[in-house]
Design a protein around this nucleic acid. Structure first.
Lengths: 214, 214
DNA sequence: TTGCTCTTGTTATCACAATCACATAGTATA
DNA sequence: TATACTATGTGATTGTGATAACAAGAGCAA
């Protein structure tokens, strides 16, 4: 069996930073910049240049020593490895305030596209937010299969989370981003991550509080 | 000079988990549970019991071997160390969809309270969202000083970020949570962290994409 | 070709976090 | 009081990521 050219295990932290690097590269490309150095990316992303080089090295050797990286070909190569090709379709469950804000946010961001939203509240069904239609939960499975969506964002009350997750998993969703902070049970092949503004704020409070105690 | 009882350097990851533990303890307390074991906290927070014990041990010895932890006294002790005492006041800059969603979210969560919101759009000024009034940016400094707020959440377009951050720092804010993903310049004594739903989604895409390549 | 400059790619080291395994110290029972 | 039992607290180990420092490679000029 042939091995891929890039290292098979890429650190999570590297993958997280790749998001910024790629945005940064796209922005350089748009500005017409053709050649850049690790230092340029580093400054724009707020990290050290040695980290940028190390991160890129997990994927292969793309630069020219003494010169730097060719923006266009670096982008092409990375896009060839991480096969998203710019367009990333996801669905959203929960079209409350937070959910709507995410739809709006994504409509302004060309990368992630919310192709369908779902809500259990019948009054919200069939409404359209920024070109995204809201469907009843019963249509999750059909739409996920039809559009071959692999990622779901859930912005629903904690009490509804596990039952919705079960529907999503059954429908074939392979990664879930939850905005509610309760543990989720999924099969091993489903990725889960959490984002919560308020617990991040609490964390900052703790940090400040302990800092003063030192 | 007297040293505190707890270790002076508590890992970031531990501090992040403390947020969950404390929520979990409060929930146990509300249910009337008086005695718990590390295993109970672990299950509820989705981590391993050995991590719970290790995390707590950074703050001191609170448990009774063979028995477990007394919920009330554990909460009291931790609250005595992390001096937030339940109420955590913060301000919010940017009262768009995302900002409003955060205000609503925090009004449902008893821990973090948004005491004032700010927006540069004059049409939004003086509106009230869930009991939180919106002020013009010019009033940031006065209100921050008056209410002694130390933490700010910013939900504004990237292009406005640095100028608002400068105002916040000048006003005495000591921690900033930004929902826009661009680097921020602050003095060393100001903590900064970032939360962005869409880049987390992109990260998940990358992860799935690479997984299939293995 | 040689030598100089520049920036990459990588190695070696350090720092930090997760995990395990068990000694320890308490409870409960007879 | 002795014995069994239980869950904590922690030292040792492993694993992972960040950092620094430098060798290697490419361009360029004389």
């Amino acid at each position: 069996m042939m091995k891929n050219s890039f290292k098979s295990v890429i650190p999570e932290t590297t993958l997280r930073r790749m998001v910024y690097y790629i945005r940064c590269l796209n922005s350089f490309k748009k500005e017409g910049v053709e050649l850049i150095q690790s230092e340029d990316i580093a400054k724009k992303c707020g990290v050290k240049s040695s980290i940028v080089r190390k991160d890129l090295s997990y994927f292969g050797e793309f630069g020219v020593r003494g010169k730097g990286y060719d923006v266009a070909s670096l982008l092409d190569t990375i896009n060839g490895i991480i096969k998203t090709f710019g367009q990333m379709n996801a669905i959203l469950v929960g079209a409350g305030k937070l959910g709507s804000a995410i739809i709006k946010h994504s409509s302004e961001n060309f990368n992630v596209k919310i192709v369908a939203a779902f809500d259990k509240d019948k009054r919200k069904v069939n409404k359209i937010i920024e070109e995204t239609r809201i469907y009843p939960l019963s249509e999750i499975e059909g739409i996920v299969r039809e559009k071959k969506v692999k990622i779901a964002i859930i912005a629903i009350p904690p009490s509804d989370v596990q039952s919705v997750v079960d529907i999503l998993v059954k429908a074939g969703i392979k990664a879930i981003l939850s905005l509610a902070l309760i543990p989720i049970n999924v099969p091993d092949d489903v990725e889960v991550s959490f984002v919560d503004v308020l617990s991040e704020v609490e964390f900052l409070f703790y940090k400040l509080s302990l800092r003063r105690n030192r």
